[in-house]
């Protein structure tokens, strides 16, 4: 009797690629991000006037042939300012969470993996940072180091570290108990290898989704800081400071406040949509049956 059935199993699930359906909304979001990103990156090469040139004769001009989207109260071209403003909003919006994800993500993973005293210290440090009033922190830093794009980025970045640390630590904690990590240890893998090859691929995804959320939040925060006059110093345009300046002319030229607000809203929405969709798309499990 054929008892030793070491048959070659050919009935493996037939190779059907999961059809990844992405909606029009996702495509529109990506298109918006690409458009804004390109415009911001190539602003200097685009055939537009300088955002700081004042056309004294055409202050608060309505949209028209000369100034597509009109001018502000100093006669500066609104369209040009929006594009240069995107430059600052996106620079800060993308760079600040990078600081958070790199530092916070590493700290969180190390804390979740090694546990012990390091974890206690990290969690304690994070709590201290969270307890610190963020506005005071911003004021202190800008007062001491000066208002510049770099400093704003650093400040928002550092403020984002606790959130990333927490996400990374929580995910790592639950993964470290999983058998595949124990299996790697049993194979004699080094800690570095376990962290990089077993844990990182699994932690990265929630972190990336969180990163995109961070981008959206940072754009808003940068806008708020500029609105309060704590952001990038004038005359450099930023969406936040444009809204603040436009506010003074709401009755005469409402578009001066609405346009930057609309740009900010669309960009934040786009980053959120992309973040959510990416998370759903990269989940290795098929939809629950």
């Amino acid at each position: 009797m054929a008892v030793l059935d070491i048959e070659v199993d050919t009935a493996v699930v037939s190779p059907v690629r999961k059809r990844r359906r992405v909606g029009a909304l996702f495509l529109a979001a990506v298109a918006w991000i690409v458009l804004i990103g390109l415009a911001a990156a190539l602003a200097g090469a685009l055939p537009i006037v300088s955002p700081t040139d004042m056309d004294i004769l055409a202050r608060r001009a309505p949209p028209g042939a000369e100034h597509w989207l009109g001018t502000d109260q100093l006669g500066r071209d609104e369209f040009s300012r929006l594009i240069y403003g995107a430059r600052i909003s996106l620079t800060v919006g993308l760079l600040a969470p990078v600081i958070g994800v790199l530092i916070g993500g590493s700290l969180g993973m190390l804390a979740g993996y090694f546990r012990g005293r390091f974890e206690t210290l990290t969690v304690g440090g994070v709590d201290v940072l969270l307890a610190f009033p963020p506005l005071v922190f911003v004021l202190a830093v800008t007062a001491y180091l000066g208002q510049s794009v770099l400093n704003i980025t650093l400040v928002i970045g550092v403020l984002g570290i606790p959130a990333f640390t927490r996400v990374a630590r929580a995910v790592t904690l639950s993964l470290s108990e999983r058998e595949f990590v124990v299996a790697a240890r049993a194979l004699g893998a080094t800690h570095a290898r376990i962290l990089l090859r077993e844990l990182l691929p699994n932690v990265a995804l929630p972190l990336v989704a969180f990163f995109l959320l961070g981008v959206a939040v940072t754009i808003v925060v940068e806008g708020a800081l500029s609105f309060l006059g704590l952001g990038v110093p004038p005359p450099a345009p930023s969406w936040g400071s444009m809204i603040a300046e436009g506010r003074e002319n709401l009755d005469i030229a409402p578009w001066l406040a609405f346009l930057p607000a609309l740009f900010m809203f669309l960009s934040v929405l786009a980053f959120n949509i992309v973040g959510d969709t990416l998370r759903a798309l990269t989940d290795p499990r098929p939809g629950a049956l």
Binding site: R178, E179, F180, V182, A183, R197, E198, P201, N202, R285
Partner: peptide, 10 residues
């Protein structure tokens, strides 16, 4: 648990 002992992303 054979499924849990394989890294889902590799």
């Amino acid at each position: 648990d054979p499924i849990a002992s394989l890294n889902p992303r590799r």
